[in-house]
Simulated scan of single mutants.
Amino acid sequence: MSALPTWEILDTSVIGYGKKLNQDRVRSGGTGAANDPVVLAVADGHGSASYPRSDVGAQFAAELFAAKGREFGALVRPGRLPWLRDYARYELPEQLVRDWQTRVWEHWGRQPGPEGADASREEVLRLYGSTLIGAVLAPGLFVAWQLGDGDLTVVDEDGRVRLPLAPERAELGDETASLCMRKAWHLVRVHWEPLPAPERAPRLIALSTDGLSKSFTSDEGFTEFTAGLYERLAARGLPGIEEDVPRWLEAASRHSGDDTTLALAHRADRVGGVPGPDPRATWATAPEPARPWGSGAGADPASEAWDPSSDLSDPPSRLPDSPSRLPDSPSDLPDPTDGTTHDHEETDRP
Rank of each mutant, 00 (worst) to 15 (best):
M1D: 12
T6C: 10
T6G: 14
E8M: 06
I9W: 04
V14R: 03
Y17K: 06
K19A: 10
N22D: 12
Q23C: 11
R25T: 13
R25K: 11
V26Q: 01
T31R: 13
A33C: 09
N35S: 12
P37N: 06
V39T: 07
V39E: 00
A43P: 02
G45H: 00
G45I: 06
Y51G: 04
P52E: 06
F60S: 00
F60Q: 05
A62V: 15
L64F: 02
K68A: 13
K68G: 00
E71C: 08
F72C: 10
G79P: 02
R85I: 00
A88T: 10
L92F: 05
D99H: 10
T102L: 14
W105M: 15
Q111E: 14
P112T: 08
G116K: 01
E122G: 15
R126Y: 00
P139Q: 03
G140P: 02
L141G: 01
L141M: 14
W145T: 08
D151N: 11
G159C: 04
R160S: 15
P167D: 05
E171R: 12
G173K: 04
M181S: 04
W185D: 14
R189G: 09
H191C: 11
W192Y: 14
L195C: 10
P196W: 06
A201C: 15
A201V: 14
P202S: 11
R203L: 12
A206Q: 05
F216D: 01
T217C: 01
F222G: 04
G228K: 12
A234D: 15
G240D: 05
E243K: 14
E243N: 13
D244S: 15
V245P: 03
L249A: 08
T261H: 02
L264R: 07
L264P: 12
A265H: 05
A268Y: 00
D269N: 13
D269R: 07
G272W: 12
G272N: 12
G273Q: 09
P275A: 07
D278K: 02
T282W: 01
A290T: 14
P292F: 10
W293H: 07
D311H: 11
P315A: 11
R318K: 13
S322D: 06
P327S: 08
P327F: 03
S329W: 04
P334W: 11
H344S: 13
D348N: 11
P350I: 08
